[in-house]
Design a binder for these strands. Sequence first.
RNA 1: GGAAGCGUGCCUGAGUGGUUGAAAGGGCUUGCUUGGAGAGCAAGUGUGUCGGAAACGGCACCAGAGGUUCGAAUCCUCUCGCUUCCGCCA
Length: 422
Amino acid sequence: MLDIKFIRKHKEEIKKNCVQRNIHCDIDELLALDEKRKILLAEIENLQAEKNKLIKAIQNVADKTELIARGKEIKEKLDKLEPEFKKTLEKQEKILREVPNLTHPDSPIGKSDKENKEIERYGKPPQFDFTPRTHEEIMNNLDLIDFERAAKVSGSKFYYLKNESVLLEMALIQFAFRKLLEKGFTPFTTPDLARDKVLSGVGFNPRGKETQIYSVENSDLSLVGTAEITMGGYHMEETILEEKLPLKYVAFSHCFRTEAGSYGRHSSGLYRVHQFSKVEMFVYCAPEDSEKIHEELKNIEVEIFQELGVPFRVVDICTGDLGGPAYRKYDLEAWMVSKNGWGEITSTSNTTDYQARRLNIKLKRSSGEKEYLHTLNGTAISIARALIAILENYQQSDGSVIVPEVLREWMPNKMEKIERKK
RNA sequence: GGAAGCGUGCCUGAGUGGUUGAAAGGGCUUGCUUGGAGAGCAAGUGUGUCGGAAACGGCACCAGAGGUUCGAAUCCUCUCGCUUCCGCCA
């Protein structure tokens, strides 16, 4: 959420930003509601001031009937104005929540992911001297996954991992946590459900039409789509001392996505599923540090996937593809046989104070001044996507798969290769 | 899940309808005192929002949302959270 005062002062800039980010919201309507809100507020406050004076006066008067009558009048007026004020405020906030964050000046301008800009590339897409398999074929062949029975138990796009893929998942988690611990991050596991107000604070719309979020009936809880939600909510309604920043957290959680409306983007296998595990980085920092830390998060992701040894590139996400909260976003995209191209494996965003304002998280300077802090998030490893990248890039002509060297220490007997069971 | 109790400022804690934005103590800040520290003394010490160049002033806030009343931290309802007891359970 942006500061309404900022929007008042930079109306044209905000409108232009909405257009570039391909988000439709009526800024004129927003400002009109804001004006109305302020007028109503002034009226209400004047009445309340009169009321407060009356309350004091009434105590020193013998015959209270006249003043009580006046008090009743004031009350009636307030009873009319207050609901109107509330309604106006709600309308205003509804629009305000839809206004996207400002955009980093270097973010490429563009309408869709086609205009994202590649800024770095590591490794080369593998040259196979055989017909490479998709991860789905590999996993079926090596008995690493069971979609059919998951469909029976939970529905389509759910899966059981099985055999070595389970071990790989745990190895990836261990690998990611050790890496982040070395870099001074504090480890967490988080709840997999969160209150709707946390979801919307972080920037997710839990119960809208096109929501990606599963909600629990008869409760205000939803299954989290990412640990960004629980880690962003972690410090909500708090003020953090400047000297404690930055707070660097790494969290494991399960992630649940309805993938509603994703039919046009059909993909088979593990690429787009209803549930997966993820190790997520989340940072709270002072505003002046967020750009630098965003680069750090990107570089950590690069380091992780370089060590995992899969070919990938880094893209700078263009305005039309940024989503609401992000000021700037980088994705890592690995080479995938199943996509015959690049597929997203991580994403890191600088959301500046957009989430912090909604979640009411401030920092207190040593001077005593308070302001909203900045939040950032980034994927360390998203297991399903990482499995795709590893299996498809490490596959051998005989159908086996080499285990990336950095993962072997977490595998039983330092397993080097996943082979077909006898 | 059942029962009971509780939720006040940075902390402890008073306050059960009216001059309480809120006693008292602690903490913290500043000044005095001291060779220095401590003790002591004095003053100050919330947030949000609106108006204002500022000084300052209005309004709101005693978990949150509603209600009763001329008037609510105080009464009523609901929600959230915490504590204790019982039940259940990985």
